[in-house]
């Protein structure tokens, strides 16, 4: 029997279940220290293997494996099916018809583009022009010619929305309910604020 303990490599080989030499076997069965070392190593390897298996099995539960299996078999099924053949258009007539359709569709597309360009150009041009009062005296102003309250000139297109808004406020303030009127009177007007500021200076 060997007196020297088993080397690390011999121990690993023995723990992995590999057949060692007769000497190694004899030493392992006789030496308590080496048996304990081998036992600890075997326990560690068993733990690592068990944990790895449990971890992989938790990530791949049965339903996942089933889905995977279905997918693999589906792919094989589809791979085996003959490819669908799409009939290729044959003959010159079909080609001519295709060309005609293409030409017509090109004209339609060109007309659409031209229309769009003209529309844009006209839109920009009219935007730059000052608004013209098209209404005759006595006729109600059009939507684009909202008259600013208290002025005898139609508002410009730019200021129309502002004026419209202010006009609505004015209109609302004149026809207020008595309860709201009290609040309105408590609210300082711009002129009042400006006057107070001017006095303060």
């Amino acid at each position: 029997m060997r007196s020297k303990h088993l080397s690390e490599q011999q121990l690993v080989a023995a723990s992995a279940g590999d057949a060692g030499t007769a000497d190694e076997h004899a030493h392992l069965s006789a030496c308590e220290t080496c048996r304990a070392r081998a036992g600890r190593l075997q326990a560690l390897l068993a733990e690592v293997a068990a944990v790895a298996e449990a971890e992989a099995d938790a990530r791949f539960p049965s339903h996942r494996l089933e889905a995977q299996r279905s997918h693999i078999l589906e792919c094989i099924e589809q791979d085996g099916r003959p490819a669908q053949i799409i009939a290729f258009p044959a003959g010159s007539r079909a080609e001519v018809r295709t060309r005609r359709v293409t030409t017509r569709s090109r004209w339609v597309a060109a007309a659409a583009i031209a229309g769009l360009a003209i529309g844009l150009a006209v839109g920009r041009w009219s935007h730059r022009q000052p608004p013209v009062a098209l209404s005759l005296p006595g006729t109600p102003p059009a939507d684009s010619e909202i008259w600013a309250p208290g002025s005898d000139r139609p508002a410009t297109a730019r200021g129309s929305s502002e004026d419209e808004f202010l006009g609505q406020i004015e209109q609302a303030s004149t026809g207020l309910l008595p309860e709201l009127r009290a609040i309105h009177e408590l609210t300082p007007h711009v002129e009042q604020v400006l006057a107070i500021n001017a006095d303060g200076r």
Binding site: A52, E53, A56, D57, R59, F60, L65, Q68, R69
Partner: peptide, 13 residues
């Protein structure tokens, strides 16, 4: 496939 799948999944994972 059914026989080998589990082992394959473990190794690949």
């Amino acid at each position: 496939l059914a026989n080998q799948q589990r082992r394959a999944a473990r190794i690949a994972f």
